[in-house]
Computed example of a mutant assay.
Amino acid sequence: MVRKPAKMYRAVAKKAYTRREYMGGVPGSKVVQFNMGNPKQQFPVEITILADEACQIQNKALEAARMSVNRKLLKDVGRMNYHFRLRTYPHHVLRENKQATGAGADRVSEGMRMAFGKAVGTAARVTRRQKIFSIYTTEQYLEKSKEALKAAGYKLPTPTRIVVTVNNLEN
């Protein structure tokens, strides 16, 4: 897999690359689910985690944060008392031009300064103030949901902010 540190893929540097048909062997996304809990019910409270800076979030980080939040919500709130959504999708293909290491490597990897590289993973490109995760629940479980999103924020490569919105469902 990737040998370079993840911080190299955090910055939004070049144009997004999503054309998988031109690249052989793009690794699949590690994100398993995008809707968890009870998606059929309407809940009055929405708790959302926003990115404070534009960045790229690797699919591994999204999946780790998703698993963390879902596990906490299942334990503390119960499956029928929330709807948890992952709001971004890792479209952008990450590429790496593998470099030779060891004795004589400086002669081997001399050319091809801006080489295309092989696909090593995918990432979601996130803009400033974009929603990453949302939890829909009742006011009774507001604090537990905020704690779960706070824990997920530590797994993401950008500073995050939690926003609470209360909707009136009585129409």
Results as ranks from 00 to 15, higher is better:
121 G>Q: 00
122 T>Q: 11
26 V>I: 06
114 M>G: 12
72 K>L: 15
32 V>G: 11
58 Q>M: 13
125 R>S: 11
41 Q>C: 03
64 A>C: 05
38 N>C: 10
100 A>K: 07
123 A>T: 13
94 L>K: 07
140 Q>D: 06
106 D>C: 06
80 M>T: 14
39 P>N: 01
111 G>K: 09
48 T>C: 15
72 K>I: 11
28 G>W: 01
30 K>P: 15
125 R>H: 13
35 N>H: 04
52 D>S: 09
60 K>M: 04
69 V>F: 11
57 I>G: 00
94 L>C: 10
146 K>G: 13
26 V>A: 06
113 R>Q: 05
27 P>W: 10
127 T>L: 14
122 T>K: 07
147 E>D: 08
88 T>L: 09
83 H>I: 06
122 T>A: 01
42 Q>D: 12
89 Y>C: 06
69 V>Y: 10
57 I>N: 00
46 E>Q: 05
133 F>E: 08
105 A>W: 10
119 A>E: 09
91 H>W: 06
138 T>C: 12
55 C>H: 01
75 K>W: 15
84 F>K: 06
133 F>C: 13
22 Y>S: 09
23 M>C: 08
18 T>C: 13
53 E>V: 04
106 D>W: 12
135 I>T: 09
80 M>W: 11
74 L>H: 14
83 H>Q: 04
36 M>Q: 14
69 V>P: 01
145 S>N: 11
101 T>M: 03
84 F>P: 05
116 F>M: 09
30 K>S: 07
74 L>R: 13
116 F>T: 11
26 V>E: 01
127 T>V: 15
33 Q>W: 04
95 R>T: 13
142 L>G: 05
58 Q>H: 12
42 Q>Y: 09
33 Q>V: 12
63 E>D: 02
108 V>G: 11
95 R>A: 04
128 R>D: 10
124 A>W: 00
22 Y>E: 12
88 T>G: 09
25 G>N: 12
127 T>R: 05
135 I>H: 00
103 A>S: 03
33 Q>G: 14
